[in-house]
């Protein structure tokens, strides 16, 4: 079986490890052997977005060294994948050797739904899950990677799942990394708007491809609408695979 190297974002490693396990299960399910390099740490996205490029480069060099021998790298985070694919080359604009290594790495890194559909060629995972779901288009996934059809196709192929139209699906949830903490009132207005559209949609679950949006939306739901749930695509799909029905709520 071909190998696929798991790129587990630091948030997933430390705070939401279940998403990493679901990712591994899905990779295995589509006929790949998941491998995990224990040396991996963080891609440097937060440092880069905050303007600390020296620190981001430190992390990016480490990332490249850990992953550059892998043929296929898969991650359950649109924003982290976008960082590696689209920002690393720019980050090393003044270091041609590292830039070359970043550019060689970029085409081998896949966001999870992109990996499943475009790389493994699987849309129907054979999953069963009874729920009405809406799909939130995470900004980095949609505008950074151009990934939108893949997760919706995967959800649409799950037996028992109804994907409902979602107003404002492609409007930012207001996370923006440190933005959420630095401009809390604006961020709150945006997440409240996102959740409002979710409630209007009639869906039971809001599914997305980015752990950052998930922290934001789920954190808001937990505070204000405890009965409602946001979920990572990996958890939703893996939960419907044969053998582990609805493993996590």
């Amino acid at each position: 079986m071909p190998r696929a190297s798991l790129f587990i974002p630091c948030i997933v490693d430390l705070v939401l490890p279940g998403i990493g396990e679901s990712t591994a299960a899905l990779v295995r399910h589509v006929g790949h052997t998941p491998v995990y390099h224990r040396e991996q740490t963080c891609c440097g996205l937060m440092a880069f977005n905050s303007g600390f490029r020296d620190e981001a480069r430190t992390l990016a060099r480490h990332f490249i060294q850990v992953f550059e021998d892998d043929a296929t790298i898969v991650s359950p985070s649109g924003s982290c994948v976008n960082m590696v694919k689209n920002r690393y080359p720019e980050l090393f604009a003044d270091e041609p050797d590292w830039q070359r290594r970043a550019l060689e790495l970029a085409p081998r890194v896949f966001e999870l739904s992109q990996f499943l559909v475009d790389h493994a060629g699987v849309i129907d995972l054979g999953a069963h899950r009874h729920a009405t779901v809406a799909y939130h288009e995470s900004c980095s996934t949609l505008n950074g990677l151009g990934v939108s059809a893949q997760p919706k196709a995967l959800l649409g192929a799950v037996r028992g799942t109804t994907l409902v139209p979602f107003k404002g699906a492609d409007v930012c949830c207001g996370f923006g990394g440190t933005f959420a903490n630095a401009f809390p009132e604006i961020s709150t207005a945006l997440v409240a708007q996102k959740v409002g559209y979710f409630l209007e949609s009639g869906a039971e679950l809001l599914v997305m491809c980015d752990p950052g949006c998930l922290l934001n939306i789920q954190g808001y739901l937990h505070r204000h609408h405890p009965g409602k749930t946001a979920m990572h695509l990996a958890d939703y799909l893996a939960g419907g695979l044969p053998g582990n029905p609805g493993r996590r709520p």
């Binding site: 430390l14 705070v15 939401l16 490890p17 959420a180 903490n181 630095a182 401009f183 809390p184 009132e185 961020s187 709150t188 997440v191 409240a192 922290l215 934001n216 789920q218 954190g219 808001y220 937990h222 505070r223 204000h224």
Partner: peptide, 13 residues
């Protein structure tokens, strides 16, 4: 403080 103005946060695993 900004985050917790309107959101909860999962504890580290």
């Amino acid at each position: 403080r900004g985050w917790f103005l309107s959101r909860d946060l999962p504890a580290p695993a």
